[in-house]
Every structure is written in C-alpha cells, then in structure tokens.
Simulated scan of single mutants.
Amino acid sequence: MLTGVVTIAAGVSPVKAIFMTLAMFAGAAQVSVAQLMAEHSSAIIIVATAIMINLRFIMYSASITPYLGTVSLWQRLFLSYTLSDQAYAVSIVEFNKPDSPFLRAPFFAGACTSLYFTWMFATLCGIFFGALIPPSWSFDFAVPLTFLALLVPNITDRSTALAAFIAALVALLTVSLPYNMGLMLGAVSGIAAGYFSERKKHHD
C-alpha cells in the first residue's frame, strides 16, 4: 500500500502507477523511480537506479536455483518474474531445514505466487485509496520492519552476522549519497564481508 501511496504522491498518474507495478514488481525500485520522475531526472538515471536497486535479485536467483532441480523454461520465466525478497527469504529458510516436508519447486512457486497477488492487490489499494489513510498511521515504518523480519532468520552464523552489520553500517554512513547509492554500497560491502569471512572460516 505504501508503494502505491508514494507513487501517486510523486505525481505519477494512476494508469502509469498500475503499469509500473505490473512491469517492475519491485517496491523499492518503484518508489525510487517515482521519486526521480517527480524530480524530473533523466531517463538514463531513472533506469540505472532501478537496475542497481534490483541487482540483488541476481544473488537471490543464484542462491535459490540449486534447490529447485529441473524446471521448464516457462516455469523459470514465471519464477524469475515473481521472485521477491519475501518469497526468497521464506523459501531459503525452509530449504535449509533438514526435515522440511515440502517439495522445493512447488513451495517456492507458492511463495512467489501468493506474494505476487497480495502485492498487486495492496499496491492497487494504495494507488486508489491511499489518500484516505491517516498520516498518523506511519505506514512508512512498515518498510524497514518488513526487511528486518526477512533479515533476522537468515543470520545464522558469524559470516552472515558480519555481512548484516557491515551492510547496515555502510548504508547508514552513505545515506546522503544521491540515487540510492548508499543502499548499493551497503549491499556490496555486506556481500564482500560475508564472502571473505566465509573463505577465512574454510581456510582455518
């Protein structure tokens, strides 16, 4: 809902907001694109920002693919389009359980599909009814809460804890950079910290 509200508040028409939601299916990127459009940024900057914010989905795909086994081309296309932070998080936690009773590909498809339709419905509600939400509800605080809920179950050892800490520290220190560059620097720094920590652990 917050994504729909912010998109309309940035001056994007409802028709364009609906198209953005269907085409992008990425809340953080949609909010950033809407804000850049409101600031009359160039098309190159807008597209580059959206791509940089969504680069994390490459990491998600590389991480989740080994668990899915053999899937057809149309299934891969569907799962790549509906992949989200939430669907990835709940799936990777489940797949790492040694006694999980679920078939992995159907579980992941179910997570992706249920989140997709929920997201679309909630965003449309924000687009058309967002003006009715009282500002005192502070919906903007729901975004960091959501990502914290995704983050905590995946901090399972020293490497993941270090990655989370470094990513958060760098993102906070660089929050004033334009075009959400601080977010990207934080992500890259966290990945690097976790990678080198994991390598050091295996060498010890």
Score class of each variant (00 low, 15 high):
8 I>E: 10
24 M>G: 03
10 A>T: 07
14 P>C: 08
19 F>W: 14
17 A>V: 07
13 S>K: 05
38 A>K: 07
41 S>G: 13
10 A>Q: 09
30 Q>S: 12
24 M>W: 00
8 I>A: 10
29 A>P: 04
35 Q>S: 13
40 H>K: 15
36 L>Y: 00
13 S>T: 12
33 V>G: 02
20 M>D: 06
39 E>I: 05
31 V>T: 14
36 L>A: 06
30 Q>H: 08
33 V>N: 02
21 T>D: 09
30 Q>T: 12
23 A>R: 13
37 M>E: 12
17 A>H: 10
16 K>G: 11
35 Q>K: 14
37 M>L: 15
34 A>T: 05
23 A>L: 15
20 M>N: 01
35 Q>D: 11
21 T>K: 04
32 S>W: 03
11 G>R: 02
39 E>F: 09
25 F>V: 07
24 M>Y: 02
27 G>S: 14
31 V>E: 07
26 A>F: 09
9 A>I: 00
41 S>K: 12
15 V>P: 00
36 L>T: 00
20 M>T: 00
35 Q>N: 14
9 A>D: 11
27 G>L: 02
26 A>R: 00
23 A>N: 12
35 Q>G: 13
25 F>C: 04
7 T>H: 06
14 P>H: 04
38 A>G: 15
22 L>K: 05
29 A>L: 08
19 F>N: 08
40 H>A: 13
16 K>H: 14
10 A>I: 04
10 A>P: 10
37 M>T: 01
9 A>C: 01
37 M>W: 07
37 M>G: 05
14 P>N: 06
34 A>P: 03
35 Q>T: 11
17 A>N: 05
18 I>F: 13
40 H>I: 03
10 A>L: 05
11 G>T: 04
30 Q>W: 02
36 L>Q: 06
18 I>H: 07
10 A>C: 13
28 A>W: 01
41 S>H: 14
13 S>L: 01
30 Q>E: 15
41 S>C: 15
21 T>N: 09
32 S>Y: 02
34 A>H: 03
12 V>H: 10
12 V>S: 07
13 S>R: 06
40 H>T: 14
39 E>P: 08
10 A>W: 07
